[in-house]
Amino acid sequence: MVIPVRDVNPVRRTPYVTYALIAANFVVFLLTPGIAGSVAGQSDLSQLCHLQAFLEHYAAVPRELIHGQLPRLVPTGEVGVGPHGAGCVVAPPEYRKSPPASVFTAMFLHGSWLHLLGNMLFLLIFGNNIEDRLGHVRFTLFYLVCGYAAAYGFAYFNDTSGDPLIGASGAIAGVLGAYLVLYPRARVWVLVPFLIFLPLRLPAWIVLGFWFVLQAVYSSGGGVSSAGTVAYAAHVVGFVVGMALAWPLRPGTPPPPEPRGLLWGRHAQPGW
């Protein structure tokens, strides 16, 4: 798997929405109950119970999205002792959960630093150009549509699952799909792990096409959605929806600048 570092595709305006989304994701991650222990690598039972209760409330759950099957008992965040030892206390929910609204809140939740940083890296590199092309308002709507389509698409194929679906990757996959359609020839600097990390400058169609093929292959083995696994099917759906929404904009999209220097290896010109 290649790691993108930056693209050679300047923007005309400041991507305020992209920056705001990144900031919001970091703030929500740091404020998520029970996440402090996971960051330090020392989650105790109390922290895990608080995290479970939070995710049950705010994460999207496939069977809730498709069938409206809300649980009768949910974790309260408290720790209790039962016949089988200590565990998380469950009780009837004290709130009324809206499955459609949970898709929105789930788009700002992440299960680990790796999950968060990986998503935000892709959004930072590729989101600014899509926001530049669409404008701030249309980009915001585009991001939300892709996120909702990815969540419901995943839920459709996993309609009996009660595992929480979290993360911004479905919406970001839509951004990647749009980038592939609008800027297939833009150069992207990536790090390729081969004994060491080799810096290469590749066309976007190779970088993003390879990413999409991997997601499609993995999803064919059955996408899953719990905090420790990846919802590959959501990535595939979000990517395809992003491509479809961006396709009408292709004719009026100016091509990215053609950088001089080497295609493979380090760039010989300033401003690599």
Rank of each mutant, 00 (worst) to 15 (best):
V5D: 00
P203R: 07
P75C: 04
A59F: 03
A86S: 07
S220Q: 01
Y152C: 03
F122D: 14
V28K: 09
K97T: 05
M1L: 11
V17K: 00
V230A: 01
V79E: 10
L30R: 03
Y95A: 05
P251K: 05
A59P: 12
A23Q: 04
A178M: 08
R6C: 14
Q215I: 01
P203G: 11
H235F: 14
Y95V: 13
G222T: 01
Q69L: 15
H115W: 01
A234T: 01
G162M: 11
L124H: 10
F29L: 02
V190N: 05
P164T: 06
D132S: 08
S169C: 06
G222W: 03
L121W: 00
A216S: 08
A20K: 05
P257C: 09
V240I: 15
H115P: 02
R201M: 15
I130N: 03
P15G: 09
G209Y: 09
W113H: 00
F210R: 11
V11I: 09
G135F: 05
V74E: 13
P83N: 02
P75G: 14
L124T: 12
N25I: 02
L123G: 00
T105Q: 13
S38H: 01
N158V: 09
E56S: 14
Y183C: 03
S161W: 11
P193I: 02
T18A: 03
E258M: 13
D7V: 02
R185N: 00
V28G: 01
A268D: 10
W113Y: 06
I22A: 00
A36H: 04
L124S: 12
A40R: 15
S225T: 13
H50S: 11
P248H: 05
L165G: 13
W113K: 00
Y143A: 07
A23W: 07
Y95W: 14
A246K: 04
E131I: 05
G147E: 11
Y148G: 00
A244S: 03
V74S: 14
A36M: 06
V190S: 03
A155V: 05
L134C: 06
P71W: 02
V17A: 05
R133P: 01
A227S: 15
L141T: 12
L31A: 13
S46W: 07
